[in-house]
Amino acid sequence: MPRAKCFDKEDALQKAMKAFWARGYEATSIQDLVDCMGINRGSLYDTFGDKHQLFISALDQYTQRSLSRGNALKQDGNTVEILTDYLYAFMYRTLEDPEKRGCFITNTTVERGSYDPECAKLIREYYGKIEEDLTALIAKGQQNGEIENQREAAELATFFVGVMQGIRVMGKLRPEETTLRPMVEVALASLKG
């Protein structure tokens, strides 16, 4: 008769995500995962599969949580103000991370994006969804005259995704508002032509 699992799967996955986020895939050992998740190896393998499958599950959990913040881009109101609030909230989340981990997606893009097809697929879908939400907001702002039309909305959306990832990378090395605020301000200035 199989033994019942004596741990919360979502909590264990959250703990694994934090370990991968802090150390990266390669530097996180199975023992690190067993220790931080508070489960034994057998339970890890039975519940999550191998290390790579666990990593993919953790990355997926992070992307879903992160994408939920994109709902802020879908609210009614002045599009420039919505985008401004969104970018500054993003910047402050970076500044308020005491461990200076950066973005799990950005870290994974750098570490595994070019040779791990499953990671690359999740990452492309993640960035694609953010670009889609930004494109819709920017296009709405262009249609109602709040944002100048000199660039295509999709081009600006891709630019803003790049700026956001740059904020996360710079925030790991120079986590000061005096460094990150100008990145937001210059990006927002691009909406004026």
Rank of each mutant, 00 (worst) to 15 (best):
Lys172Cys: 09
Gly113Asn: 01
Ile138Ser: 00
Gly141His: 03
Tyr126Cys: 09
Gly77His: 07
Asp50Lys: 05
Lys172Ala: 03
Glu26Trp: 02
Met1Gln: 13
Ala187Cys: 02
Ile105Arg: 03
Phe48Cys: 11
Tyr92Asp: 11
Arg23Phe: 12
Lys192Ala: 13
Lys18Gln: 14
Glu99Met: 07
Glu118Lys: 12
Met170Pro: 00
Lys140Ala: 14
Thr63Pro: 01
Phe159Asp: 05
Cys103Gly: 06
Gly38Arg: 02
Asp116Thr: 07
Ile105Asp: 06
Ile30Trp: 15
Leu134Ser: 08
Cys6Asp: 15
Ala89Pro: 10
Asp50Gly: 10
Asn40Trp: 00
Val110Pro: 03
Lys129Pro: 00
Ala187Trp: 01
Glu111Gly: 02
Gly113Cys: 03
Gly141Leu: 02
Asn107Phe: 11
Gln142Asn: 05
Lys192Gln: 12
Thr106Tyr: 14
Tyr92Thr: 13
Leu180Ser: 01
Gln165Leu: 07
Lys15Thr: 04
Met17Ala: 12
Thr178Asn: 13
Lys192Cys: 01
Cys103Pro: 04
Gly70Glu: 12
Gln143Lys: 06
Phe20Cys: 06
Glu146Ile: 00
His52Asp: 04
Asn149His: 13
Asp76Thr: 07
Ala187Met: 02
Ile39Asp: 09
Arg69Pro: 11
Phe104Pro: 03
Glu155Thr: 13
Tyr45Cys: 00
Lys100Asp: 02
Ala16Glu: 04
Gly70His: 12
Gly77Arg: 02
Gln165His: 14
Thr108Ile: 05
Cys36Asn: 11
His52Trp: 13
Glu96Tyr: 09
Glu132Cys: 07
Tyr25Phe: 15
Ala12Lys: 03
Thr109Val: 01
Asn71Lys: 13
Leu33Asp: 05
Phe7Leu: 14
Leu122Gln: 08
Met183Gln: 07
Asp133Cys: 08
Phe55Gly: 02
Cys119Lys: 03
Phe7Gly: 15
Leu122Glu: 12
Ile123Gly: 05
Tyr62Phe: 11
Ile30Tyr: 15
Ala189Lys: 12
Leu122Asp: 09
Leu156Lys: 08
Lys15Glu: 04
Ile138Pro: 07
Val110Phe: 15
Gly171Tyr: 08
Arg3Gln: 14
Glu148Cys: 12
Arg181Gln: 07
Ala22Thr: 09
Ala12Val: 10
Leu137His: 04
Asn40Leu: 01
Glu111Val: 03
Leu156Val: 05
Ala153Phe: 10
Ala16His: 06
Arg69His: 14
Met17Ile: 01
Thr79Tyr: 03
Gly49Phe: 08
Leu137Glu: 07
Ser43Leu: 08
Ala58Leu: 03
Ile130Thr: 10
Gln75Arg: 15
Leu173Met: 15
Ser114His: 15
Met91His: 04
Leu33Gln: 00
Thr47Lys: 02
Arg3Gly: 13
Phe7Met: 11
Gly171Met: 06
Ala4Tyr: 10
Val161Ile: 14
Gly24Ala: 00
Glu111Trp: 12
Arg112Pro: 00
Phe55Ala: 03
Glu118Phe: 11
Pro175Met: 07
Gln143Thr: 06
Leu73Met: 01
Ala120Cys: 05
Lys172Gln: 14
Val169Met: 09
Met17Tyr: 06
Lys18Met: 15
Ser57Asn: 05
Thr79Lys: 12
Pro175Thr: 08
Gln61Cys: 10
Ser29Lys: 01
Cys103Ser: 13
Gln143Met: 04
Cys6Gly: 14
Cys6Thr: 15
Asp76Met: 08
Leu87His: 00
